[in-house]
Design a protein around this nucleic acid. Structure first.
Lengths: 332, 332
DNA sequence: CTGAAAGCGCTTACAG
DNA sequence: CTGAAAGCGCTTACAG
């Protein structure tokens, strides 16, 4: 029923190789091209992707490795990748690493075996093992969210995010501050956001900043908040992600602390939910969706053998909302 | 570098067909089997999936069509599907329909062309066109979230969800109630939840229930809440999804209405965020993750030609939390 | 249980 | 610009 390239060749009275050349944009006479155009259309011809891949030894599939499927950042990025890929006839093969670095490595090996054309990886950290696996894959690997000088990378300006947030809360008059971060093994989220924040605080003589650390889980953030509140009773807790901020907000509620009058809280990310909760959370928006589109475009170029910038830095935007109290209120 | 089946055959001193038979569990003598076992292992042989698919005309890929990537339900379901598929060596190819029924149809056609082994579809509604496309695909199609007597379906007990919720809020003493639903074109979410709720209310003589409708978007729910509050000033708004409930909560906050003392709100779904906001949202938990695992298992059976129950109904669970005021408080 | 051969639907040098 | 032929790495009747 479904036509193959031989059928088309026969119908057009040319050789299979001519049809193939036509399909792949090779040199074909104008007349032949016209004829084939009509015939393939009328016959509803669709190339068999397996046969193509078997010969060409690659697919139009782009492997995408995400730390988890149910995170706002991952979902937005995947949506961007998917949409952009489709416009070019590509497809996204999702690989869920389940927050396990080891599974990220395995994913690269597995995807390489399946001959995907390229891999977009959203890693929590980039280890030597990651680099080795990426090289061994023998196909383009693009990092999103974390940088490496050995791989093409698309990162957010985490440092500036921290800087913007630092300036903002300092400007609101906060001096006794707790910074709830994550492991510095995570270069982007754990290290650079904090460094940016620290740089902003460096200009401030009378600041008292305590640094804490938690995992990415909301539950851990809730626990960390208990400790922070007991130990240093800050006027503000800056959290390295919106999820952590949600956890801190939860603990504040449970303790009967009103936000922002009794405790100010901020996040990073710009998750949708931060605009829904009350009060709305002050945070920094990260362009996850745009990053996905950008990543897909770059990957398409890489698989086509074109040049792509090694490092792209995406800008972020402060969302100053209600969860930070203004301590500069004129005293009556 | 990478070995193919001929290399293995040569190394083992047998024919390619024998190797193929060994690989696919065909009849091979114990001796040959042992030898091939060792050789394939030592050589690190990995079959070329394209060649397999080209011949066998199918893949180990299972297409999964979701309405959107960034929804809690979709993310949980995908996670379940992905995990279960992997244990069987399968892979999930995600197709994002972007909330467009037409793209769901296209997705089935596209996936069929790509010769995926089966399709798991999470549709908003099941039209005749869906049914036709599913049949034309020529591969197993499994519905999740919506039922059809013409296709294998895995659904939630939406009717019971509505019933449980109805009994709960009535039991808490609410009588003046607004039900914010969605289009009845959505059999599960729009129709059955409401029917269940209505059944619970039927037992209640002095009930005053007004029915409203909105899209699935949080923004629309916020608007709908304005109308509801103006028109009928209920003590409680029952929302057909947690997202709608979030929108209603938002509007309540903006109007300065305290929850639950001045307005009670409930949802359906059991999204993670409902346990994070303050007060926690009363809702019904839907087992999305389990549904994903179940769907994958069924699909694996279907592609293997095994029998699978046409209809599976997954149970739901009421999560009675803080967003519903108890009107039965003893008056002092 | 095993092997030789054909074929899945393409692409790619190689000639012309 | 075009065609004939080989080959990508498998699977599958068909004999034996």
């Amino acid at each position: 029923m479904t036509k193959n390239i031989s059928d088309i060749a026969q119908m057009a009275g040319v050789a299979k190789s001519t049809v193939s050349r036509y399909l792949n944009g090779g040199s074909v006479s104008a007349k032949t091209k016209q004829k084939l155009e009509r015939i393939t259309r009328e016959a509803g011809y669709v190339p068999n992707t397996f046969a193509q891949s078997l010969k060409a030894k690659r697919t139009h599939l782009i492997g995408t490795i995400v730390p988890r499927l149910d995170s706002f950042a991952a979902a937005q990025t995947m949506t961007g990748i998917d949409e952009e890929l489709r416009t070019a006839g590509g497809r996204m093969l999702v690989y869920n690493a389940g927050q396990d670095p080891q599974r990220e490595i395995e994913a690269m090996q597995d995807l390489a075996r399946q001959k995907v054309a390229g891999i977009i990886l959203m890693p929590a950290q980039v280890t030597d093992e990651h680099l080795r696996a990426a090289e061994a894959a023998g196909i383009p690997v693009l990092l999103v969210g974390q940088g490496s000088n050995r791989l093409h990378s698309l990162v957010y300006d985490d440092y500036r995010a921290g800087l913007l947030m630092g300036r903002h809360v300092l400007g609101m008059g906060h001096r006794r501050i707790a910074y709830l971060g994550v492991t510095e093994d995570d270069e982007a989220v754990g290290r650079r956001r904090k460094e940016g924040f620290r740089a902003a605080a460096a200009d401030c003589a009378d600041c008292d900043i305590s640094y804490y650390e938690s995992s990415f889980a909301i539950g851990d953030a809730r626990l960390a908040a208990e400790t922070i509140l007991d130990e240093c009773a800050p006027s503000l807790i800056v959290c390295a992600t919106d999820n952590l901020a949600l956890g801190v907000v939860k603990t504040a509620h449970l303790r009967g602390l009103s936000i922002p009058s009794q405790l100010s809280v901020t996040g990073f990310g710009g998750y949708e939910v931060t605009a829904i909760i009350n009060p709305e959370l002050t945070t920094v928006r990260f362009p996850y969706y745009e990053a996905g589109k950008h990543a897909a475009r770059s990957m398409l170029k890489l698989t086509a053998g074109e040049e792509v910038e090694r490092l792209t830095v995406l800008d972020v935007e402060l969302l100053a909302r209600e969860s930070v109290d203004n301590l500069n209120k004129p005293s009556v």
